[in-house]
Design a protein around this nucleic acid. Sequence first.
DNA 1: TCTCGGGTTGTACTTTCGTACAATGGCGCG
DNA 2: CGCGCCATTGTACGAAAGTACAACCCGAGA
Lengths: 205, 205
Amino acid sequence: MQKVLRHLFVTEEEPLRSNWVGAFPSAQLSHWSSSQQSFQADLFWLVLPYDDGAGALIDLWKKIAGPSPLVALSDEPGDEEGISVLQAGASGYCNGYASPEVLRQVAHTVEQGGVWVGQSLVQKLVSAVARQASTPAAAAGGWAKVLTEREQAVAMAVASGASNKEIAGRLGITERTVKAHLSAAFEKLNVRDRLQLTLLINGLS
Amino acid sequence: MQKVLRHLFVTEEEPLRSNWVGAFPSAQLSHWSSSQQSFQADLFWLVLPYDDGAGALIDLWKKIAGPSPLVALSDEPGDEEGISVLQAGASGYCNGYASPEVLRQVAHTVEQGGVWVGQSLVQKLVSAVARQASTPAAAAGGWAKVLTEREQAVAMAVASGASNKEIAGRLGITERTVKAHLSAAFEKLNVRDRLQLTLLINGLS
DNA sequence: TCTCGGGTTGTACTTTCGTACAATGGCGCG
DNA sequence: CGCGCCATTGTACGAAAGTACAACCCGAGA
């Protein structure tokens, strides 16, 4: 780990550049503007432009970077941009104005072959995948397994947007009974209200 | 970063334990078996059992850990297990026999609020999401176009299961204002309550 | 038989949600 | 400058939702 790594930081924005230099004062680095001919580096930092097309940009630089990892920096990180960037093969995606400490953290992770991703993005990815995996009939979600038949019926009605009164009418029972089944479902599934129940059932939580 | 963090390493498997101690020889740590009464720690390491149910296990420990991050360690890491673990709210997932260096790396990442995920898992997540042709909600959109910026923010928060009070806190406004934005959104989108709003936004209605 | 889980319902209460009526301040625009 | 749109907040009230503490009926088992 004592090996000195060559970093290449690509951007035209001065504030970002100085922020980055603050994080790696001792690193040997090349600049975008300096030597256009030689892009040899062990780690590429690429600041994304405001307009979209981030994926294509990464694609382009991946060819230049070759086997070296590439981290995308964004002024305004967003989940969609992050997904396209990672899909294009970037090894990291984070805020360009991240603290030096975080930047070094990112560098360290990426150097070791890891992928650096922000928390919200990971959550989004995970939930999306989980949803996709469980959507088919299966109800594999498991949520159904712990509920009784009646609780399932009420829960599914709730998840479709029905009110307690509507459910009561639909199932031919009292609104009170609907509440009873719902409370039981909340407890078993560890959610606090019908909205979170809905998210859970639809695999969105 | 000089702050000494309390780690809690939970397992019954000696080889894993010693591997872990090797990674954090100087850390103050508590052991599962030692003081059952106090589970105060800044970082929880949880070794997953062979049988499944990893998600539920994480769920349980999340309650104990509170706001502190939790890292799941697996003898045989797999993408499915990783997904369920992350979905349950773990901040990291890696091989229990990872090198001390990697373990420290993980700790560092997680301590800073990051999420540590292996490369293959990230790739899987990303490709799965990409395959889904983006979110039908975001694409089908339309709903966002008719809402003001503020209304969108509140609507999205609601669609993620937040209560009015939580949204108010999150956006730094009054609960009353949240209600105002929500009422406006209901009217514009022609829905009657937050649950139907949620279904609409998530493309489930 | 007696216990146990599931389904049902009642009364009463707290909390949250949603709306009505209303006001203030900022901002762009003719 | 007035007008409209947006963001913000207040008070108040009715309607849902959710919880607490029950009770009763019924079928499957120990």
